[in-house]
């Protein structure tokens, strides 16, 4: 096919057979059109309400939360995180102390919700560990515990007393578990067990898409 523009002194004759770019130029126009369409959709989507978490300065955290963290742990570098959720906003203090990772969650008003510390199975009482493992063995063909957190939901007073003395304080246990049952899609769950290792609840963990790491 020839395209000739004879009235234009600068006209160029294109030959689709000899010009390798002829077909691809059309493809490129289509590509740019699709990109434009997608970016427009993106702009519209970006206006929607979203849930997120982000770092904040200590000074932006509620004063009562700052006071509690200061009483709980001195000398650690504290990361303050604000979480915005559909269920309500919260503020979290994360830090490392004595080789362990702690996370203390407060309401937006600074009311303590819980203190979580990452532990291993070996730090659990034997009977609690056995009960939890039995539950997981019965629930799945295969499972792997990825994270265990001891979760303290007691009052500020009780938690501070436990922190500063040898008081025993029984935690709940929150586990992140990778699991698979034959014929089903492998899934990740967050489990909650009570202080004695009895099952309380589980929720499926929705992971962010990782297509940007695969392609």
């Amino acid at each position: 096919m020839l395209i000739d523009l004879p009235n234009n002194p600068n006209s160029v004759t294109y030959n689709s057979v000899n010009n390798p770019n002829f077909i691809t130029n059309d493809l490129m126009k289509a590509f740019l059109f699709v990109m434009l369409l997608v970016l427009t959709t993106t702009f519209v989507k970006a206006q929607e309400k979203i849930e997120r978490e982000y770092r904040i300065d200590a000074i932006s955290a509620p004063q009562t939360a700052q006071n509690f963290v200061a009483a709980f742990q001195k000398g650690s570098r504290i990361k303050w995180i604000k979480e915005i959720n559909a269920e309500g906003n919260s503020v979290e203090a994360k830090f490392k102390a004595d080789g362990k990772r702690y996370s203390i969650e407060f309401s937006e008003q600074g009311i303590l919700e819980d203190v979580e510390v990452i532990i291993t199975f070996s730090e659990m009482p034997e009977d609690v560990k056995d009960k939890i493992q039995k539950h997981l063995k019965e629930a799945f063909d295969y499972y792997k515990v990825e994270k265990i957190q001891a979760q303290y939901r007691q009052s500020e007073k009780e938690i501070l007393a436990w922190r500063t003395s040898n008081n025993v304080l029984k935690p709940l246990y929150e586990l992140v578990v990778k699991s698979r049952n034959s014929g089903e899609k492998a899934q990740r769950f967050e489990f909650l067990f009570d202080t004695d290792g009895n099952f309380v609840e589980r929720a499926k963990v929705i992971s962010r898409s990782d297509n940007i790491l695969r392609f």
């Binding site: 979203i50 849930e51 997120r52 978490e53 770092r55 995180i81 962010r208 790491l213």
Partner: peptide
């Protein structure tokens, strides 16, 4: 080997910039 890195907080959240 690739990595997506959050510049703010534990996760990359909507409307956030990240490093890959």
């Amino acid at each position: 080997l690739s990595s997506d890195i959050s510049l703010n907080g534990e996760f990359i959240d909507p409307k956030e910039i990240y490093i890959k």
